[in-house]
Design a protein around this nucleic acid. Structure first.
Lengths: 231, 231
DNA sequence: TAGATTGTTAATCGATTAACAATC
DNA sequence: TAGATTGTTAATCGATTAACAATC
């Protein structure tokens, strides 16, 4: 049942749940295209190696309702997750920094399917300005604030070099942008009302490289032990 | 003090700690280049909006030691985190899929500084094979397993379209690769000893788009209230 | 020395897991 | 109906925060 906080949209969803929702979503989309109509938490839990009760709680956050003995309609789940994550409405976004990473993001097809449409790119380099990257026009950086305001853009993506990131962020704030997805390795200073998400690709590398380093270490030690103890 | 599990490398570090370490790292590198020699957890906590005790516990995982009343040597911290995350040794990696995202990753300078060196790219497209992308040679996909084994490559990066991802993963496993960083929206089936890290860029979008959606909703509701109650 | 800071142990908080009644 | 599954409440587990002794 919905409580007072819920109805005001003030419930804070647990971070781990928020991170799992896209995983459910992808899984459910696969089920959907395989023609599956209903699914139970037990099955989801098995397939994704998660506790079924956890799955149920996670999904409950989206407001979806299931039928005892039956399960959930796959289509309901997909729709509810989309709504919950705001993927049903398209967010128009501006991207600043048309370098390698910026270009890749401009051509990343999954974004469109998940409510993100990058409508224009901005760069300071005159050689890039005016060109098209993946069908998106590259415009002069100085025009960002004016255009953002005129077009009511809410979301900005920063893929410029670190030294330029703060200035770009200032431009975005000035243009009325409310949320920034920052790929530059810089802590941006913005008004507290602006949502910033830092996304350093190498951050994700931490878990993988730590695990790999540990794994290799263990193997080396095992090797040494085996050699020493001749067992 | 190090316990038995630690010494065998079996302690599992909390996920949240692992996610915060790169943040400390970047912060500390900045301090370092600003010429700062020592730092206290109190200061770190203030600057990064984290509880100082948490900072202390996180850092303790790396085995670093501080001096009461003084703090930690910045250079110690940087080095210990690098060691802990395996960023002090370069991991040579193969990348499969020389498309937009693959090319961007090939040119991402931060990787090198964090222990990741992509030494070659692989693709099936004959038009790409033989060319150089950011100085890295693109080779035929079929040669991946043999080369990986010959060169002792441990890490593979998958940036191919979803339909090809499983086959590429099989190639990598066949070539003796032990950890896979998978950018394709597919759950890979690999032997349990292989470490897989799934990295869908749009996953990260979830938190941001949810927050933005909620924010806009709240604002709309506020607007309505204001209008209705003429307050 | 006095006070700031580390390292560590205890208390709290929140997320995960278990238990179970409701129900199709 | 019987049994599987949902929704929810209680128990457990682990991470965060608080408290405090040791120490430079």
């Amino acid at each position: 049942m919905e409580n007072a906080a819920d109805s005001k949209g003030l419930t804070t969803i647990p971070e781990p749940t928020l991170r799992r929702l896209p995983i459910y979503y992808q899984y459910l989309r696969n089920l959907e295209s395989a023609g599956k109509k209903v699914i139970s938490c037990t099955t989801i839990g098995n397939d994704l190696s998660l506790d079924p009760t956890q799955v149920r709680k996670d999904l409950a956050h989206t407001g979806v309702e299931g039928k005892p003995k039956v399960g959930y309609m796959v289509s309901d789940l997909v729709r509810k997750i989309e709504e919950f994550l705001g993927w049903n409405k398209i967010n128009a976004a501006f991207l600043a920094g048309a370098g390698n990473l910026g270009s890749a993001l401009l051509g990343y097809p999954q974004f469109r399917e998940h409510g993100l449409s990058i409508v224009a790119a901005f760069d300071r380099d005159p050689a890039k300005v005016g060109s098209l990257i993946h069908g998106k026009r590259v415009l002069p950086l100085e025009t960002l604030p004016g255009l953002a305001r005129r077009m009511g853009i809410r979301l900005g993506i920063i893929t410029v070099p670190p030294a330029a990131a703060q200035e770009v962020a200032d431009f975005m704030v000035q243009g009325g942008i409310q949320a920034i997805w920052n790929f530059a390795p810089v802590m941006l200073k913005v008004p507290s009302s602006i949502v910033v998400r830092n996304e350093e690709l190498y951050y994700s590398l931490a878990a993988l490289s730590h695990t790999l380093a540990k794994k290799l270490n263990v193997e080396i030690k095992k090797g040494e032990e085996g050699y020493a103890s001749s067992n």
